[in-house]
Design a protein around this nucleic acid. Structure first.
Lengths: 183, 183
DNA sequence: CTCGCTTTTTGATTTAGATCAAAAGCTGCG
DNA sequence: CGCAGCTTTTGATCTAAATCAAAAAGCGAG
């Protein structure tokens, strides 16, 4: 989700900003680890983050977030359960962060926060529905084309294997598809 | 999502109930059609509903809802855009309904409504994440087993083909998997 | 009961994409 | 420069599941 949706309510943003912390992560640094409970919400100023989990010995990337976007482990952030996700900066990344306690405080004390939360998750939900549908009804080739039309810059900023797992295919398959296009 | 979560706040439920309409749909009847904008939220008293969309000439079932659960086209219900989904009663179905206008009214006038909406979508989001992960990292056999451990009754209440498309496989594949188990 | 229709099963074949394996390309560093 | 350790590409199989096709099983209506 883009941060501009969040900033749509400047008053809300100002109230939150006072509580947010500026953080920098260098390339390769893990931001939050799987298994931990306290999760922050990040507004990314600069950089790219991947969010992934481990399944049968391999890492599956389920999300990329870059400058101008909000990144958070929605599941545990809102439920309080330990997360299965690890987030990692892929480039030097600058962002503002808010802890889950601060967020809870905001939900209880800032009137428009629940509405923001509702809209934020609705947007995330709709995005996920689209990804779900693409993975069940599109071929690897089509998924690649959709990705390229939506996030063409990412393929040059992150390793191929991460994108492949994000798209639900192996690195070899993605490499072949990409090669075919140019040839 | 189960309706009990909704009823967790009896005060909220009472305020809404006064505005809800009781409706009955007979087996096979479409409840809401793809392409329409006004969408209702349903609390199901009795019956089963399937929600599906059309893709490349075939129907993909993306959701089942039965007695005790809430059914709504979350995407357009919250965005106001026409939905791609059709919902259909598979048995005679009784439910309470709330129009999107009534829901908007509730969001604006009942203080705890935004919070309910946020929690409702969060739950739906988490459920969808699980389905997404299962479809990208599990075999057809494993998806069948998961389905049977979670919703064993549904396979006897709805046609096989609907469940197959819900699980992201063909009817033949589901039939073979099921046969193998018993044999 | 039995005819006609729908749903489910079974069978044969095909195929997209995975897997396994190795060769190329890159990139930084001593 | 040139080797070491990466990421990416290319090649040769293999396999889960789709597709195509038809038989069998259910089931409601006359």
């Amino acid at each position: 989700m883009s941060a501009s949706t969040f900033f749509g309510d400047p008053n809300l943003f100002n109230q939150l900003k006072a509580r947010m912390k500026f953080e920098t992560f260098c390339a390769g640094k893990n931001i939050e680890e799987a298994g931990s409970v306290p999760r922050r919400l990040f507004i990314i100023e600069k950089g790219v983050i991947r969010v992934f989990y481990r399944s049968e010995g391999r890492e599956i990337c389920c999300h990329f977030a870059k400058e101008g976007e909000i990144m958070t482990g929605i599941d545990s952030f809102f439920t309080g359960k330990p997360s299965i996700y690890t987030s990692q900066a892929l480039e030097e990344t600058h962002c503002y962060s808010l802890t889950s306690e601060q967020l809870e405080w905001a939900f209880d004390n800032i009137p428009s926060m629940d509405r923001f939360g509702r809209k934020f998750i609705t947007a995330a939900y709709i995005e996920l529905v689209e990804r779900y549908n693409s993975v069940v009804s599109m071929s690897a080739q089509e998924r690649y084309e959709q990705f390229m039309s939506e996030k063409p810059d990412l393929l040059n900023r992150v390793p191929l294997g991460y994108v492949a797992s994000y798209l639900g295919m192996t690195q070899e398959t993605l490499s072949r598809i990409r090669g075919k296009k140019t040839a």
